[in-house]
Simulated assay, not measured.
Amino acid sequence: MRLTVLHKTHYTYDAPVPYGLQQIRLRPKSRPGQVVEDWQIDVAGGQVEVSFEDEHANSVDLVSFASGQKEIEITCSGTVEVEDKSGVVGPQGGYVPLWLFRRSTSLTKPGDRIKGLIADAPSDGGDLDRLHALSAHVLSAVPYSTDQSASDLTAEAVMEAGHGVCQDHAHVFITAARALGFPARYVSGYLMMNDRVDQDASHAWAEAYVDGLGWVGFDISNGISPDARYVRVATGLDYRDAAPISGLRYGNAAEDMSVTLQVQQQ
């Protein structure tokens, strides 16, 4: 399936910003199951200073603000050919050893609630069956809700809240999978919902490493493994490693952000 993406992130400030710097992880790469045919990033109110690969082999663009700006807009657009591989990505690549994906982070540290989730999780079948069952178990314990959208909630805090969005589901699944002995990682990217062109936001899901298959994706929020409607952009130990945009700015200006995103089949 050939997907076209148009993603705009618009920042406005109530006072001129003397200095700002952002890391942009919005450039997908050709990987097993997807081929990037074309992709470009345009910045209004700033410029791309340098592009590089991080430790997870994500493509990163470092964007600086033009001095004194009150607006900056980052536009990503391109076309990606995606194959339905039932979520199977394959062997570990890049610069990070597989064992590191068993390590907890501040967002994925298991506590009593995660331990209780694991204790109640189905344990029958092989590794792949157990992970699919865990995905369904997480969604049952933490129903999808947009009542909160903070990106820095820990897995334990999500369990306490009892609801969450896709990034919360990914963090809970990753935390539980690691506690069960599976390497697991966070994935950010795009999902084309079948009933619309204008998407609500970019998407997040999780991957776990299964012997004999390699990395396998689990979209906990939608109860499936990624198919030809998904574009993988960045991966990491948690959201902070794979955040689409992160950075800093100098000054006290208040920020307002709006996002428009279109994903459609060409």
Rank of each mutant, 00 (worst) to 15 (best):
D219K: 09
T175Q: 09
S123K: 14
S149Y: 09
V187K: 05
T105L: 03
I245M: 10
P110D: 03
P110L: 04
A57F: 04
R113Q: 11
D152K: 06
A121V: 01
Y95Q: 15
H169V: 02
D61S: 04
T235D: 00
L107S: 06
V82Y: 12
Q40T: 09
N58H: 06
Q167M: 04
N222Y: 12
P97T: 03
V210S: 14
S104K: 11
G116Y: 02
Y144N: 11
M257L: 15
K70V: 07
A150Y: 04
P32T: 09
T260N: 15
S145P: 09
E156R: 12
A170Y: 06
D42N: 14
L3S: 12
D120Q: 15
A184M: 07
V48H: 00
W205T: 15
S145A: 11
K115F: 03
G87Y: 06
L62W: 01
T105M: 04
R103F: 02
E53I: 00
T235W: 00
A141I: 00
S246K: 10
L139Y: 01
W215C: 08
V60M: 00
T235S: 04
A201C: 11
M159S: 09
D14M: 11
H169I: 01
A206E: 07
E53A: 04
R2L: 10
D112R: 14
S77E: 12
A176S: 08
G247I: 00
D42C: 06
Q69S: 13
L100S: 08
A133R: 10
L191M: 13
Y19T: 05
T9S: 10
M193A: 15
H203M: 14
E156I: 05
H171E: 07
A161Q: 12
V172D: 00
V48N: 01
G33K: 11
K109I: 01
S202R: 06
G20I: 01
Q262S: 15
T105H: 07
S77C: 13
I41S: 11
L153P: 10
P244V: 01
L107I: 01
L261V: 08
D38T: 08
N222L: 12
L117A: 00
A121P: 03
Y186R: 14
V172G: 02
Y11C: 05
D211T: 12
S145D: 08
T4Y: 07
